[in-house]
Design a protein around this nucleic acid. Structure first.
Lengths: 207, 207
DNA sequence: CGTCGCATTGATATCGCTCAAATCCGGTGG
DNA sequence: CCACCGGATTTGAGCGATATCAATGCGACG
């Protein structure tokens, strides 16, 4: 069966799935071509990049497992960027027509889809606020407070700390150092990839 | 007239609108209360804030004119954060029931809404990639490349340069200095709030 | 005019980036 | 079982870009 391991994947899409395996540096789609599918990252990573005339590129997004790709481009005539696998990846895809038919015929799926877009929008906006903070410590605190679970804001980091550093807009060295310092100062607890705020914590505020 | 100045505002919502004026620091809604409306920022700014146990707070989003607020909370039983006006603001709102009825009954509105969420998601992700760039110059170039019009990526800045600096995650001093330097180096043209890339400095195009 | 906020420029401090090196750890092959 | 390898993790030293603090000009507005 070609289902997905990810809980966010809408079940209604299962009957229309096709599975695609990508090698590193392999293209998923290119700018200027018409969107024919909606894509879901099952494993690996796929980058959305925009290219300049002189070969320089701007990374628009780095899609990770559990994310849809170019879901916002379905109503566009053409992709506005290139998508390329940055590592070996598995992508699930659904034909545009199937998807749009589902959206019209299946009211429950339509609500699911709107909820999914809304959730991704909230996540993205929280990340924007996080990246607007100037210090590494504030970004880590923001991450725990906005995505941590329970009274101590516990968070199990997905992937490596290096990946987390990139997501936070920091070098991995800065992240390691700041985590170590916060741990020494008693601000956070850390056991491997499990982070949390200490109860006595800190009377400090961020605005 | 209770319409909106913003082009992104769906016309279908017009009949259900009510207008709300907020003073600085006035609450729009609080965490734990049930969502009853969908909100649209017409003027000003409204912050979504989540509070920790010891009074520490993180800004999840700083909603600006033209944005919907808490559109993802409609299917939640309760708001998960507080919303407070950070300056004098005008908010348009639609009752939850009216909105959901429209979503079900009006297929065109449903498509409009999905397209709107997708557009906001794309915008947010482009901003994330911009904020991930390390230097002020790169962020400015990314802004022009991703949002500028035409072969020279011309961009008319909305609001003040100070606002732009905040949106780019920079201090206004850094932005002024970097713009001046790029202008001196012939990388960009600037006439007031009108920015563009110079042809020889950067013959780059977006697709 | 006087005030207020934006725009601009200068001087200095600071934090994160860069380069570098050592350790750990899981996997792989001999 | 052990040697080896690659990547993640960690710590150090120094530098540089941006933040910070400060001062001035300027235009709008009452």
């Amino acid at each position: 069966m070609t289902g997905s391991r990810h809980p966010s994947f809408p079940l209604a899409l299962l009957p229309c799935l096709s599975r695609l395996e990508l090698q590193p540096a392999q293209w998923l789609f290119r700018a200027g071509t018409p969107p024919r599918h909606i894509h879901f990252i099952e494993e690996g990573a796929v980058r959305l990049v925009r290219h300049g005339r002189q070969g320089e590129e701007v990374v628009l997004h780095d899609a990770r497992p559990g994310e849809f790709l170019a879901e916002a481009s379905l109503d566009s005539a053409r992709y506005h960027c290139d998508a390329v696998a940055s590592e070996a990846s598995v992508v699930l895809r659904v034909a545009k027509a199937d998807f749009q038919r589902l959206l019209i015929e299946d009211a429950a799926f339509e609500r699911t889809w709107i909820a999914l877009l809304g959730a991704q929008l909230r996540t993205a906006r929280a990340r924007i606020e996080r990246l607007s903070l100037r210090s590494a410590e504030e970004r880590i605190r923001h991450l725990l407070l906005s995505e941590g679970r329970g009274p101590r804001c516990e968070l199990e980091v997905a992937g490596t700390l290096k990946d987390l550093a990139r997501q936070l807009g920091l070098t991995h060295e800065s992240l390691y150092r700041t985590l170590a310092r916060m741990q020494n100062e008693g601000v956070i607890d850390r056991q491997g990839l499990r982070l949390s705020l200490t109860p006595e914590g800190d009377p400090k505020r961020m605005t």
